[in-house]
Simulated scan of single mutants.
Amino acid sequence: MPVGLIIRKQPGVTRWVKWIWRPVALIPGAGPAEWRELRRDGDVVDYHAATMNLMVFSSDTDSYRVTLSARVPSLYVVMKDAESPVNDCPWTPKLITANAYEGQGYNESGEGLVELVPMPVPMIAWLRDFVETHHVEEEFIKRRRDKKRVDLVEDGKGDIRIRQTSDVFRAPRNSSGRLN
């Protein structure tokens, strides 16, 4: 599904940050656009920065269920540092994903900017219908413990290629059997 990304530019609140750029909204089914100004209110400007494809896969329906179960269902918007800034924006849109696990992975990597943007109601319904159609519940299978006895004491033999009179991994003992 093509998704338009709205990025808002607003004045910073400190002298060190002149402008704050952040994704604020999504347009489902948007046409192509590149930094088209949508709205201006004083110094605050909303841009239709890009239209990107939201890809969903039947193998990721478990992750989409996590996304839909959030208090506010949102998509992850991943942005990277801009090589050639447009409108002085330091970010370039890289990815829009509904996969909560993928978004969390980008968030933990510390690369670029990762923001959650609330999904419009039609997108929520579209994703919910996709999950209902393609989700297959997988039965949990508990792994059984091996039958190998790990409680038996073995003094180990060390490296079999080296001749030795005793175990090289055992602590040395004197003739009375006590540790030295």
Rank of each mutant, 00 (worst) to 15 (best):
W21K: 02
D43F: 07
M52S: 11
I20L: 14
W19P: 00
R36H: 12
V24N: 02
N53M: 15
V17W: 02
P23G: 04
V45Y: 00
R15L: 13
P32G: 07
T51V: 14
P23H: 03
A25R: 02
I27L: 12
D46W: 01
A49P: 10
V24P: 08
D43E: 15
A50T: 11
W35Q: 05
T51C: 10
L54E: 11
M52K: 10
R22A: 14
M52H: 09
R15I: 13
T14K: 00
V24L: 10
W19V: 05
L26D: 06
P28M: 07
L38G: 04
M55F: 14
P28W: 06
A50Y: 00
P28L: 06
W19T: 06
V17A: 09
A25S: 06
D46P: 05
I20P: 04
M52W: 04
Y47H: 08
W16N: 11
W35L: 10
T14G: 09
V44R: 04
E34W: 11
L54P: 08
A25L: 01
H48F: 08
I27M: 08
V44F: 03
V56N: 02
V56I: 15
V44Y: 02
P28I: 10
G42Y: 02
L54W: 09
W16P: 03
I20Q: 09
K18F: 09
D43Y: 06
R22S: 14
L54Y: 06
I20K: 02
D41L: 08
A50D: 10
V44A: 07
D46R: 00
T51Y: 00
W16V: 07
F57Q: 14
Y47D: 06
V24Q: 03
I20E: 12
E34F: 13
F57E: 14
E37G: 05
N53I: 15
T14R: 00
A25Y: 00
R36T: 14
V17H: 07
L26E: 03
K18Q: 13
K18C: 07
R40T: 13
G31H: 05
N53P: 14
L54S: 10
K18M: 11
W35F: 13
A30F: 08
L26N: 00
E34R: 13
V17N: 11
L38V: 05
H48R: 06
T14Q: 03
W35D: 08
R40S: 10
V17C: 07
G29F: 06
H48T: 04
V24D: 03
W21S: 05
M55Q: 15
T51I: 09
L54M: 13
L26Q: 01
F57M: 09
D41G: 04
T14Y: 03
V44C: 05
L26A: 05
W21M: 03
A33G: 12
D43T: 07
I20M: 09
I20A: 08
Y47F: 15
V17T: 15
D46H: 00
R36L: 13
W21P: 01
W35P: 08
L38N: 01
A49V: 15
R36K: 15
G31C: 08
R22F: 11
M52Y: 07
P32H: 07
T14D: 10
M55L: 15
